[in-house]
Design a protein around this nucleic acid. Structure first.
Lengths: 125, 125
DNA sequence: GCAATATATGCCTTGACAGACATATTCCTA
DNA sequence: TAGGAATATGTCTGTCAAGGCATATATTGC
């Protein structure tokens, strides 16, 4: 779990993962798309592989890297244990209220709303 | 997103988050539970706070730290964009098959199963 | 106001890691 | 089999962050 986080905590590695979401790619393709030197790409891919986030498939002298589901699924499972946190608590709402109190006005509240958009309480089950 | 990962990538910080899942705690309580020096706890909490993962509430001279939902929800949303990865692909199964081929036997497969438990293909919708 | 408690901050050292660059390795093809 | 393409690895350097320790800050009750 922590290893997954560590792998994704590096901006360029995160970008690589995002890129691989669409489809598998080989090393040079990644380097070109993300404007990274080839050795750097290889090293990042190594870390991702060690973390189990990608898999390699040799294609002649190229290597096709593809995302692996397992760590993502594991992350998903981990997050579900935190369901209670965002089902039960209302600190988002509290934030807005506090913001209003702090600013004694409604001007800034707009900003908060914008920042929090797409995080509206989600109904489930 | 990356900042969230970075915050959770540190083992002790991860433990703190896990601890706060049950309920809010104050600094010393965390330090005792996790066997960490007080300054270290404060510093980790600072990082978590900067990442938006926790919130503080002063209680006399103590500070009550509690989990915030927003980054976790955001992480959850991010992961859902990867649904396709684990709905469409079957590399987990491929792994097992490959493992069998590599070991020319069924002994090791048990281990794989154990490692992959609780990640069974989830039906949805 | 002062001691005591709870927490935050500053400084220092050390280890890890990302990037740049050079070079090794592997595999294909002519 | 030599050469070239694709990728991996090694070395070096600079940066950053975690832990340990000392100290500052804040809040309470006396």
């Amino acid at each position: 779990m922590v290893e997954t986080f560590a792998a994704l905590a590096e901006p360029n590695r995160f970008r690589i993962v995002e890129l691989l979401r669409a489809r598998p790619r080989h090393v040079n393709e990644i380097g070109e798309r993300l404007q990274l030197n080839q050795p750097q790409v290889s090293k990042h891919l190594r870390v991702l592989k060690d973390a189990g986030l990608v898999d390699v498939e040799p294609r002649a002298q190229q290597r096709l890297y593809e995302l692996r589901a397992q760590p993502l699924r594991q992350l998903y499972d981990w997050l579900e244990r935190y369901r209670d946190v965002w089902d039960a608590r209302f600190e988002e709402l509290d934030d807005v209220i506090e913001q209003i109190k702090r600013n004694e006005g409604a001007r800034k509240v707009e900003g908060v709303r914008a920042k929090e958009k797409s995080h509206g309480r989600r109904k489930r089950k």
